[in-house]
Nucleic acid binder design. Sequence first.
RNA 1: GCGCCUGUAGCUCAGAGGAUAGAGCACCGGAUUCCUAAUCCGGGUGCCGCAGGUUCGAUUCCUGCCAGGCGCACCA
Length: 569
Amino acid sequence: MQKLKEEVGQTIASLISLEEEEVFLLLEVPPDPSLGDLAFPCYTLARELKKPPPAIAVELGEKLAGQRGNLWEKAVPTGPYLNFHIDPQAYNREIISQVWKEGEDYGKSNLGGGQNVPIDYSSPNIAKPFGVGHIRSTVIGHALYLIFRALGYNSIGINHLGDWGTQFGKLIVAFKHWGEESKLKEKPVDYLYQLYVQFHQEAEKDPSLDDEARSWFRKLEAGEEEAVAYWNRFRELSLETYESIYSMLGIQFEYYHGESHYNQMLERVIDLAREKGIARESEGALIVDLEAYDLPPVMLRKQDGATLYITRDLAAAIYRRERFNFAKSLYVVGAEQTLHFQQLFKVLELMGYKWANDCVHVPFGMIRFKEGRMSTRAGKIILLEEVLQKSIEMARDIIEEKNPDLEDKESAAEAVGIGAIRFGDLSNDRIKNVEFDWDKVLDFSGETAAYIQYAHARICSIIRKAEPGYLEWDEKAISSLTREEEVTLVKTLALLPEKVIASAESYKPSILARYLVDVAREFNRFYHNCPVLSSEAEIQHGRLLLIDATRQVIANGLGLLGIIAPEKM
RNA sequence: GCGCCUGUAGCUCAGAGGAUAGAGCACCGGAUUCCUAAUCCGGGUGCCGCAGGUUCGAUUCCUGCCAGGCGCACCA
């Protein structure tokens, strides 16, 4: 599509007063394919030429009458537009050969030139269970990680564990009051979570528990042995549990740098804020006043001397810059923290860091129950593990029903079950809230991962049955692809590279996810109307090359979303 | 009270200023001597939350209002 645009842009620019660049930006895809494949709207020229747009379109059309380009065969004026129609033969050859040559690299590029892009994602809070709420950061962040990597950036996955803060004081208090060793050993995260919930229940009745918790956190910050020992133990036990979930999801991080990792740097941050004259004492606490920027003040240190979340985030931001010299620094964190990040970036700017502009909060909506929000404290939460298990189970049942002879049902069930959960979180605009509903989570029909995976599996099935050697390049075979379904499929395949770029630029994997549904849909239309194996040799060969390119696009695209494309299901 | 986000078909959502606003689900009907029917084909629905404004042109941008969600110094 890029090549076609460039070619058409050049052609038009040579006829009128606009620069190639300007024309390029005006070009658009007509709403109905029968109108053409690329349109040049003539509105902008109307004023300058003092002629109605349709007249301009006709004029341009006359100048191009009988002409053709490498990829287009005619230019037809329609109303205020000049519509270019591709030359299907040339276009098929161009696109299919590109996919065929680039293979796994189709869709990739080197826009990033190897620059570092640290991505802060997943970042669960230690000692709290991994709920479905956390899956959003994990899945969206990981997709962005893969997408940026594909564009030549050096993505750096950072799991900014919530392993510091007052909640540890609470846990220590709860464990000292009500904890049992044996239960902790058995199911550490579940049990710590129980204690956490219990703490909040008890603290309702007895507010002195909160003071006790704050005091323990202070001891922790002061490095007192007993507090540190508890902390360390809770942290290690929780990490083990998280890692099992990550391995289930196929996710790794370059660094597990939790909040505690920045403890040594906090004094430096505070000193710097003072030196810059932006921090001041207020009611015994140290704050940065942001009133001039219409933002609430930021607290760097509490009355009791303990630091806060944002102090550690400042340190982390500076650390990332100094260590990675990033082109961009991404934070895949819920939209409820938007204000926090506005404050964070503003303080960095006031500290004199120009790179504050390269820090990006990538927000997403929350997962809620119909009745209201999920709450870790109140124990109203659904565990990610449970969701994954149920989803895999559902996939297993469907496989048993649809394809009982499949050899490796388990790996297919995992690919489909986990893919469904991931895709569910990736396919809609991330900013929207999601209502948690088991029926929807476990529904594999319609625009879902299974739909795309099924198309992939069908292609693989056909290819397995084809004679060997039929995937050799053959221009004549490609020339036989003239049916509407074939041409439309090729046009869809051509879009992968720009969809990957659009996903990265907007930090929205949903663009890529939606596109893959389109690819699968176009393939299914083709599949039902164009037999492959039973066609005569040349057409068969051409169609095999076409579906293999389709297979490649689906595999590459799902790969960038962290979803497995099974060969059989 | 102030700020941010969201508002499109019965439901869930696509649509990043342009041609008659599109999918999935749900509902009804059809397709399997043929490469996996987890598929495909057909059937209809919209004051694009409301009111102004900018523009040749607004679902898209701006302002106000309404509704829902989320935030707003000693949590993260």
